[in-house]
């Protein structure tokens, strides 16, 4: 494991449901070095997706400190809304790639245009994008639209989008959750292969124990869940 890429201390988050305050995450600590991998385990509702959202700035913590890619975000201090928001956006743009279970692609654009769009936003050369689709064995589908390819092919395209931006950290939220076993294994293989090849860090939220076992570290949110 290389230098520390991510450090989280005392992270907490709750949601309001009507008048009720529902705690989701409490006192989360974790550390991840560059090139390392971490599996987030836990049953549905345990806060896996919420933690990923916090780690890429899509949601704000109630408390805790996040240090990622050299940027420090302190949840306990009064919000520096616009400044934090801008820094998080810059991180997501260039350094943090996110893969969801589904709907990672713009439906009105071809697979290639989707990859180009993501790479272009990250400041990468859009001309290299065909090569990423080739590497993920969907080069011949470059001109097709998301609804013209299978779920597995869509997830491969999503991986191509993420790795085309050459991220330092990939956050994957159950990226194989909607696929059949065989396809899921193929997509997972590609994910770990590319992670190893590019040297980026990976945080993977999953129910799948086998998949989690392929990661260097595991964090079971069932054990850290608030009472």
């Amino acid at each position: 494991m290389q230098d520390e890429l991510l450090r989280v201390r005392g992270l907490a988050k709750h949601f309001d449901s009507g008048t009720e305050r529902v705690p989701v995450l409490s006192d989360i600590d974790l550390t991840l070095g560059g090139g390392g991998s971490l599996a987030l385990m836990g049953r549905s509702g345990s806060g896996k997706s919420t933690l990923l959202n916090l780690l890429c700035g899509l949601e704000q913590p109630d408390a805790g400190v996040i240090s990622v890619c050299g940027e420090l975000f302190n949840g306990r201090q009064p919000r520096n809304g616009r400044g934090d928001s801008r820094r998080w956006a810059d991180l997501r743009c260039r350094h943090i790639g996110v893969v969801f279970q589904e709907a990672n692609l713009m439906p009105a654009m071809s697979l290639l245009d989707n990859v180009r769009l993501r790479a272009g936003l990250a400041g990468q050369d859009p001309d290299d994008c065909s090569a990423w689709l080739e590497r993920l064995e969907i080069g011949e589908l470059a001109g097709r639209y998301p609804d013209q390819v299978s779920g597995g092919q869509r997830q491969r395209a999503a991986l191509a989008m993420v790795f085309a931006m050459q991220p330092a950290l990939v956050l994957a939220d159950e990226p194989t959750g909607s696929l059949d076993r065989h396809t899921a294994d193929d997509v997972a293989d590609e994910l770990f292969r590319l992670q190893a090849k590019t040297g980026c860090a990976l945080i993977l939220a999953t129910h799948d124990a086998e998949l989690a076992a392929r990661c260097e570290q595991r964090l079971d949110l069932a054990h850290t869940a608030p009472a």
Partner: peptide, 16 residues
């Protein structure tokens, strides 16, 4: 709205 949120996930600020 999800697809516009994707733009935010991909690093566009809320204003953008």
């Amino acid at each position: 709205v999800w697809y516009y949120r994707l733009l935010a996930v991909w690093g566009m600020g809320p204003r953008e």
